[in-house]
Amino acid sequence: MVRETLIDTTLQKKEGFIRTGIDKLDRLLEGGIPSGFTVVLLGSPGSSTEILVKQIATSGIVTYITTEETKDEILDTMRRFNWQIPDIDFVDISEKYYSNILKGEQKRVSIYEQRSKLKLKELIEIGSTGMPSTTTATEDFLAILSNRTKNLAPNRTIIINSLDFFLSQCNQDDVLKTVYAIKVNNLKNKGALLIVMTKGVHGELFERKMEGLADAVLELDVIQKGSSFERYLSVKKMRNYAKKIGIARYVIDDSGFVLEMIERIM
C-alpha cells in the first residue's frame, strides 16, 4: 500500500479523459474518467452523492437526467456553491413524475366535490353515450431515458441521478437492458456515463450485475468514528487502470466536494 498526498494543483486537460471538475478526483483518476467509460456511483445514504454529482455536472458538456430533484432545485444548489454553471441539458423526469402523482391525488381529493357538482341527468347522459377515454398508460420512463441518451454530440457526459427511480418503476431486467444500451451509445460517443445508485437496496445480485457492466465503480461511504462521521470515496473498479484503485477521505465544504487524503491500493 502506498500512501500519497496530492498537491492541490490544477491538472492539464488530458487527451482521452473527461474531467470530473474536482481536481483531486481527477488526480486520483489520473486525468479524469477515461472517455467511453460507464461509471457506477454507489452511494450510501448520507454520503452526499448528489453534491458530487452536481459538481461533476458543472464541468464539461453534460446531459443531466434527474429523477428526484427538479431542474430548479439543482440549479439552486449549484449557485449556492458558487460553481460556474455551464449550459446543462436537463432531462427532468422528477417533474413529469410528480405532476402525474399530483394529478392522481387531486382527482382523489375532489371526488366528493365533483359528485356534488355533476348533475345526475348529465351523468346518465354521458354514461350511456360516450366511450371511456383510454386510460393513460403510465409514462414509459425507460423509453425517455433511452431516447434522451441517443445520438448525442461526442464527449458528452451523461449523468443519471439516480437509477433508483427507474428501479422503483420498472423491473430490473428492463432497467439493465436500457442501461446496457446507453453504455453502448456512450462508448461510441466517447463520452462519460455516470450512473448513481443507492448502495444496498436493490439486492446484491443486481448490484453485482451493475458493477460487472460498469467500467468503473466509485463508492461513497459514511463511517461513524466516535462522535463524528467520516466520509470515504473509494474507487473499487477501474477497467484497464489497476493502479487507479484507491480510497480517499472527503469532506463537503463551502466550495463543494473536497478530497483530503488518498490511499492507493495496488
Partner: peptide, 22 residues
Amino acid sequence: NIIDLRIISERLGLDTEKYTVE
C-alpha cells in the same frame, strides 16, 4: 339504459383501473 361505469368513474375523477374503498 345502458351505462358505462368507467365513464361515470372518469367523470368522478376516479382512476378507472384501480379503486380504493372510498
